[in-house]
Every structure is written in C-alpha cells, then in structure tokens.
C-alpha cells in the first residue's frame, strides 16, 4: 500500500522533470544561466596560484557523513568541480592536492583527477599521492591546517559539506594568504565561510557548477527541472496562503494527508 502519497507525487514531478529536461537539453533545448561570481573566479584562482608558484588545495569537507549518508550529493557535487579544477591545474602546471574526509571518496577523486590530467595532455603530472585521507571531523581539519601551513597554497576550494571544521579550514587559509572559494548547502556553517572566504556559492548555486563550468547541454537542460520545481513550490505556497486566508482549507488538508 502506498504511503506518503503527497511526497511521492512531488518526487515523481521532480524526477520526471529532470529526465525530460536532461533529454531536451542534450537535443540543444536549454536556457543560459545567469552569472555566478563564485564560479567565474575559479579559473582566476588557479591561474594566480600558478603565477605565484604555490599550489591549490581542494576538499569536499566532513559534514554529517560520507557517501552512505544523506551528504552524498554534496560530496559528489564537490568532486564534480574537482574535475574542472584538475584540468585547469594540469594545464597551468600548478600542484593540486585533494584531501578527503571519507575514504570511499578516494577512488572517485583519483579517477576524476587521472581523467582530467589525461584530457589536459599531462597524464604523467598526476600521481595518486595527490589524494590524501586523514580521518574526519577536527582530526581531518587539523591535518588540512598542517598541510596549508607547510605548503602555503595560493588557492583553496572548499566545495561539499562543512560543519564546525569550516572556520578551522578557511581562517587558516586566510592566514596563509590563500584565495578561497567555498560552497555548501549547510546554513549553519555557511555564514562562517561567508565571513572568511573571498567568494561563496550559496546553497543551490553549487549544484549548477557542472552545467555552468562545462557548458554541457544535457546538464544545462536539467537546470530547467529545478526552475520548474521552484516555480511549482512558489505557486503552492502563495496559493495555499491565499486559500487558507479565506479559510478554504482543502489544499492544506490534502497536503497534510499526503505527508503521512
């Protein structure tokens, strides 16, 4: 017997919109994205670190859990941008270090970086030692701080999910003079990255990274599914508010029933 029918209906709407828009996008039907400063400066940041002869450090954070937790999409979104940054770093011949707080991310990170260095024509510049693991939580943050004090990177990218370790990483990055870009959905810790980083991707902005940086048609197409869902939510919220103002309760009753 189906339960939580309302949530299921919402999810089917989102999944259907995603599959349709991915297909439509791959056939060339998509809309351009507005400018996102945080993503424009990634190329600049890697270039700057090459000029200064200092490396780049990248991590997807510790947050609440690894791949088998609901933080999986955030780590994977961070790894997605790692491919683009590795491509830039290989071309600019500046060292790139990836620190992962969860061991299961290491095979994915190594695979992504190996592909990016090969595509950039520098396969021998890549070594598996560029992907490191020091545990999670503050132990991981303390190890990252040590690496930054030692190598004094000129650019630091914190894209994934960060909890209390966010300020340990980005205030140390500021102290060693790194140009820092952060991006994450966690509203509790994002304010600290806003206070200590040069650029910040706010919440959903980090999920359009792949589409924005690669210009891949299918990915650009899929952004439409997010737009359609948000417009649907706005309609439901405003419609629901108006209906309940004139004490017509069927819509909110329906939603309450659908949520159980």
């Amino acid at each position: 017997m189906i339960q939580r029918i309302g949530v299921l209906a919402l999810l089917i709407f989102i999944l259907a919109a995603t599959l349709v828009s991915l297909y439509a996008g791959s056939k060339g039907r998509y809309r351009e994205l507005r400018r996102i400063p945080g993503l424009e400066v990634i190329k600049e940041a890697v270039g700057r670190s090459a000029e200064m002869g200092r490396g780049v450090i990248f991590s997807t954070g510790s947050g609440s859990g690894g791949l088998n937790s609901d933080s999986a999409p955030y780590h994977l979104a961070g790894l997605n941008t790692l491919g683009y940054v590795a491509n830039l770093a290989a071309t600019a011949q500046t060292p790139l270090t990836f620190v992962s707080a969860y061991p299961e991310l290491m095979p994915l990170a190594q695979d992504t970086m190996r592909d990016a260095y090969t595509v950039a024509g520098e396969p021998e510049a890549y070594s598996d030692a560029a992907v490191q693991y020091y545990g999670k939580g503050w132990g991981y943050a303390s190890a990252c701080m040590g690496r930054m004090e030692e190598e004094r990177p000129a650019a630091a990218l914190w894209l994934g999910i960060f909890w209390s370790e966010a300020l340990l990483l980005s205030e140390t990055g500021n102290a060693v003079g790194a140009f820092q870009i952060a991006g994450q959905p966690d509203s509790v810790n994002l304010p600290f990255q806003i206070a200590s980083c040069d650029y910040v991707l706010i919440g959903e902005e980090m999920f359009v990274t792949g589409a924005y940086l690669s210009g891949d048609k299918a990915l650009l197409g899929s952004v439409f599914a997010a737009e359609a869902t948000k417009v649907l939510v706005i309609t439901l919220v405003v419609g629901g508010a108006i209906l309940s103002t004139i004490s017509v309760a069927w819509l909110s009753q329906l939603l309450i029933a659908g949520g159980v």
């Binding site: 995603t18 999409p73 959903e204 599914a225 997010a226």
Partner: peptide, 14 residues
C-alpha cells in the same frame, strides 16, 4: 527548499 531541490536533481544526475 532551494538546496533540497538542487540536491535531488544533482543526485539523479550523479
């Protein structure tokens, strides 16, 4: 709501 929508769609792509 925005990041949850983004996470679901990104999850499907991933």
């Amino acid at each position: 709501i925005a990041f949850a929508v983004g996470a679901i769609i990104a999850g499907v792509r991933q």
